[in-house]
Design a protein around this nucleic acid. Structure first.
Lengths: 248, 248
DNA sequence: TATGGGAACTTGTACAAACAAGCCAGCCCT
DNA sequence: AGGGCTGGCTTGTTTGTACAAGTTCCCATA
């Protein structure tokens, strides 16, 4: 059973994406929408809040809401999981495990992952047959056995861990910057040493806030772009100066 | 007059940031908070929604809410305006206009900015005296006179335009990727040609959804990092494959 | 022709109530 | 000891109402 406000949000989203409300045009008033869907004003407001969070429409007190964009947004899983993102975009994904070594947590890892033993995995990922991503992932000790049991050519670790042990990657924190390719990066990705890579470092936790993994992902320049929409009063993405808390 | 739910959110945020609720611990129930603040449950829920959007706490039906982090988040202005971000972080910012040329809109610009005449500005920005950012900004014709009237060493264009003509940068869409430094990038930033740069392309609009500027900002690697927190069910940041809608 | 004041409209905030859905701990039974 | 179940707790959804605050636009006035 899907909530009412979600169905209303879906209908409005379809209208916007379908061109019924062009970019720059005004949405009907809350009262009008409430009447149209036979719902309370609060329910309509909840539906609209969803679209505002997606960046599709803008809102300010006193004025009618405005359509800001007409491109669909993606799900958390697609940001978090390379395979699920690729699949949702109709791209063919591949990859293999290069190395997989259990070891003791080093330096800040122990605190970051809240455990002493970790499993370090190095994966090379391909898109449409081309190598585009190097994943250096450190898994917390308590999930390491399930990770080690996965086949080396497993496309979606996220999906596999959910299927095998019911683990849900619920929250993530991501740091994005640019780095030069090191010797091993360059060899694996087939680029020159020193060429630009887009780096995404992330730490992922369960619903309870328990850390699951810490990863350093490096994309070949030109292969992937991150996109974000924001507005005054909502600020999901922030900048940080060079000296970073999660840095190493 | 600040809204009640914002004051409650601020108190809870202070509690979390101050360590009263450590990372991983549980928050009091809605009913408990409602009693403590003598507010309705709906109001408390609104306050909590703010903190969830900031990524400070996680929530799921049936279980107590959990503290996910204890680092403050920043404001939209700080993502959008280099100067305001630097200021908020206590960094000394400088910069100057390299060139400023009015011209006809080219290619996709006319559609993107919804105008025929544009003003192209090239700025070099410094942080703590070091050059870190090249800004290539194209302003829509209707705001060009106000931009041209600014002093060449103006630190915050965003602030200056608000002060002079009341313009508010309300919404933004950002694309983030990595590129190699070109010849002019390298010269201005004082790095070698081909060295990695973090690129942020963005388009900014007013409250009405009217495009104001289109910018290509390139940061020297290591100087700046973008950070984002997300969760299942909320997905502000997305990935895109190489072939981009806003690309050129 | 400008300009100021409103009136009507629209979104934001707050409260109250009821039910649905999911989680968790403790109890009971085997 | 272990497993299943139940009941209480907690968050999610929906409706209704009232007022506050901001925008827009028309109209009367200077």
């Amino acid at each position: 059973m899907v909530a009412r406000y979600e169905r209303i949000a879906a209908e409005l989203r379809d209208d916007i994406l379908g061109g019924a409300y062009p970019v720059g045009s005004q949405l009907p008033s809350e009262a009008e929408l409430a009447a149209r869907y036979s719902a309370a004003r609060g329910t309509v407001r909840q539906a609209i809040a969803v679209l505002i969070a997606e960046g599709l429409i803008g809102s300010r007190q006193g004025a009618r809401r405005v359509v800001l964009g007409n491109t669909p947004s993606q799900s958390f899983a697609e940001l978090h999981s390379f395979a699920q993102w690729a699949k949702a975009n109709g791209l063919r994904v591949g990859g293999r495990v290069i190395s997989q070594t259990p070891r003791a947590a080093r330096g800040a890892e122990a605190e970051r992952l809240a455990c002493g033993e970790v499993l370090e995995v190095l994966r090379l990922r391909t898109l449409e047959g081309e190598p585009v991503l190097i994943e250096r992932t450190v898994y917390a000790g308590w999930i390491a056995p399930a990770v080690a049991a996965l086949p080396p050519d497993c496309d979606s670790v996220t999906q596999a861990l959910y299927d095998s042990v019911g683990l849900v990657f619920a929250y993530g924190e991501h740091l994005i910057d640019a780095v030069a390719a090191g010797a091993s990066d360059a060899r694996l990705l087939g680029v020159r040493r020193g060429s630009p890579l887009l780096r995404q470092r992330r730490i992922t936790t369960t619903y309870e806030g328990r850390p699951v993994e810490w990863s350093d992902d490096r994309y070949r320049a030109g292969s992937v772009t991150f996109s974000i929409r924001n507005s005054i009063g909502s600020n999901p993405l922030v900048r940080q100066a060079g000296d970073l808390r999660l840095g190493d």
